[in-house]
Simulated assay, not measured.
Amino acid sequence: MTNPSQSLALSNTALTAAISNPGALGTIEAYIAAVNRLPVLSAEQETELGKRLRDAADLDAARELILSHLRLVVSISRQYLGYGLAHADLIQEGNIGLMKAVKRFDPDRGVRLVSFAVHWIKAEIHEYIVRNWRMVKIATTKAQRKLFFNLRRMRPDGQTLDPAQVDAIARELNVRPEDVSEMEVRLTGRELALEAPQDDEDAFAPVSYLSDDGMQEPSNVLERRAADALQGPGLGKALEMLDARSRRIVEARWLQDDGGATLHELAAEYGVSAERIRQIEAAAFKKMRAALAG
């Protein structure tokens, strides 16, 4: 029978593997439940582990420090669920920040790891959100990032800001009023797919009206050039690969302006059956396709 200490070791082993992939335990709920069962370190234990990591590069000490603070990452990540990103992904990025904090942790400064790690965890989550929230990056400067993560909270009831509110937010965040207005527009702008959904043929998407008729799309240009080549020099070269009878049949059937000859008309001309003309035609096409492909 497995004793409690062995169970904790097994749990820690599984969690260690799940740090980079919170979904590895099955569900995010299972991960959070396992994290919340881990014991919290005392200040003395934390200091001892920090010194072992700093002085002896003890990876087991680093693992214990990380595992004991995984619940902190879960707690912080919940604050960013409103951005439409998966909770597991937010936790994963926060865990990266926690690992960076543990690597830089100095136990002699008298600061608990929890206080030191908050900055690194939030920094990684912020970077992930800005990088993935939209295809078009909306927060590229320090001021824009500050507005991105604060403006939603500061907008009263999500309503459009009036000039006085814009000025008040700008003063509080120490940014320019025009930066506040610009970020408000970018945050409230409705996203629109470039192409219509595949299951909605009647949808009128931007791709239908944003194209410039005066500019030829590159793939269409190449396709047209290839078609011209096949109908001109390419076709002539392919016909030259045929014997006289096969070439006559192809030209009579398919290269005439008046609709071309029928199988029976060519069968009478060569004194064979219509089926034999069809076989010769098929063999000719096979040779021509090979010539055109080459």
Rank of each mutant, 00 (worst) to 15 (best):
E201D: 14
I91K: 06
G259Y: 09
D167S: 15
E191K: 12
H264E: 15
P233I: 09
E124I: 02
N36W: 00
A24F: 08
A274L: 10
A261H: 11
R134A: 07
F285C: 07
K103Y: 02
A139E: 07
G294N: 14
G110A: 08
S115K: 06
D157Y: 04
A261G: 00
E124F: 08
E251R: 14
L85N: 09
L192M: 13
D60E: 15
E182S: 12
I121N: 03
S5R: 11
Q92K: 15
P163T: 05
D212I: 10
A30L: 09
G232A: 08
G110E: 07
D258N: 15
V118L: 01
H126L: 02
N36P: 00
A170G: 04
N220C: 03
F148Q: 08
Y83W: 14
S246N: 07
V114M: 04
F105M: 06
A24Y: 04
A101T: 03
A252P: 01
A17Q: 07
N174G: 06
G294A: 15
V73A: 13
I91C: 02
S7E: 12
K142H: 12
M215Q: 11
R112D: 01
S77A: 15
A117H: 02
K287W: 01
G94I: 01
G50Y: 07
R289N: 12
H87K: 10
K103M: 06
G82A: 10
K142A: 15
D200F: 03
V73L: 11
N36H: 12
A34H: 01
E182C: 03
S11T: 04
A24K: 08
L292F: 08
R37N: 06
R54D: 10
E64Q: 15
G214P: 02
K122H: 06
I91M: 11
A61N: 12
M215L: 14
S273T: 15
A193F: 08
A283R: 15
S75P: 00
N150M: 13
A164E: 15
A33Q: 12
Q231I: 05
Q159M: 09
L49C: 04
R37A: 09
D179C: 02
L151W: 04
K287L: 13
K286T: 12
L151I: 09
A9L: 09
D58N: 14
A261L: 13
A196K: 14
P163R: 12
G50A: 10
L65E: 09
L187S: 05
S219A: 05
L210F: 14
A30Q: 04
M183W: 00
R155N: 03
I277Q: 08
F285V: 10
I19H: 00
D167G: 05
G82C: 10
E29A: 10
A293W: 04
R54C: 04
L85S: 08
T2E: 13
V272S: 12
R78T: 09
I19A: 00
M99C: 13
T2S: 11
A57E: 13
E48H: 10
G110S: 07
L263Y: 13
G97L: 08
P39G: 03
Y209D: 05
L85G: 07
W133T: 06
E64L: 15
R145Y: 00
R225K: 13
